[in-house]
Computed example of a mutant assay.
Amino acid sequence: MRILAAGDAFVSTDLLKKAVRAELAVSPDFRELSLAWPVEPFGPVGGVHEASGTEEQVIAALDGAEVAITQMAPFTKKVFAAAPGLRMVSVCRGGPVNVDLVAATEAGVAVTFAPGRNAAAAAEFAIGMLLAAMRRIATSSAELLAGTWRGDYYSYDKAGIEVEGTTIGLVGYGAIGSRVARVLAAFGAHVLVSDPYADQDRVRADGAEPAELDDLLRRSAAVSLHARLTDETRNLIDERRLGLLPHGAVLVNTARGGLLDYAPLAEALRAGKLGALALDVYDVEPPPPDWPLRDAPNVIATPHLGGASRQTADRAARIVAEEVGRLARGEKLVNVANPDVLGR
């Protein structure tokens, strides 16, 4: 089997190759491509989103490959047209956003992905952001290192809030949101969950309370976003819904930038409507130099690190390698994004 391993500085080519070798009885014929992400930001390439590298790089690297395994390489209509022998693209991400699924299906190429690969890392990161924002950990640290001792943070009106006994709302209840809920419930929080597609009995079993979104926002002292970005959820938290939050509420977005309307956030922070804002994802990545939130108060901002754990990279490589093994053994593929192609 000829396989293209298109790695990057996080899920490396060597890591992908090692995982595949562990799955196959015979060592495959590898083609290799190393991409510049995350040193260089991802972006749209040839009609797909969040990709690294060029179509021409991928076409040249495929060189007759039957299988491609990658995290970031763009697989577009142009790439599929140039690779008639390709049978499967296995993407080690929670969703194959770097693959044109319509073109893949038309070409008869199965596309697999790695759901839950970063669920533990992302859940831990979201909880860390909640704690940092609710207790002013990150902002007070930055101020102290800049030379300012904020003793006034011990005054009642500026002090942080505890998780225990606090109502915290989670928007989205997949692999990440459900983990966050269980941890917060263990902390003693009253957890509200808004997700119309979640099993409501499971939500209750995890110690949380199902709620309609607007009701959740009105009742929550802190809100963390965990929904997938779709046409339905784009700008889900807009200016109207921000206005529903209690005065001084904490808002955390470690999911997708497009879930949140960023335009009103700076003013909401300055007016005290938002007590703190913690972000790991953005409507534009990286944010531009004139980004309004750079000088807004009580902002924590990290460069899209929620899934950045070594275990995530190891797990991602293992998941795509398992799909390669299934293909080689003639077994049914598990995590297929375009199942209509399987009958061909």
Rank of each mutant, 00 (worst) to 15 (best):
P287C: 05
L217F: 02
L130E: 12
D314H: 11
L327S: 03
I237W: 02
T105N: 08
D295H: 11
R256H: 06
H190T: 09
G169S: 04
N335P: 10
R202C: 06
A25V: 01
L145H: 14
D290G: 07
A313K: 02
L251W: 14
V111L: 10
G85E: 12
S141W: 09
T76S: 10
A5I: 07
V39A: 10
K77M: 06
A308L: 08
G94P: 14
S309D: 11
A6F: 06
I59R: 00
L265N: 07
I69G: 11
T105M: 07
A5V: 11
D295S: 11
L279P: 12
D314L: 15
D199G: 14
L244E: 09
L225T: 02
R179Q: 13
V320F: 11
L225F: 06
Y282M: 01
G257M: 00
A208Y: 00
R315A: 03
V183A: 14
R241Q: 03
T148Y: 05
D231Q: 14
N253W: 08
R202S: 10
G248K: 10
S194R: 08
P246N: 01
G248T: 15
Y282Q: 00
R21K: 13
D215Q: 11
D195T: 00
A266K: 14
L33T: 05
G94N: 03
I161L: 15
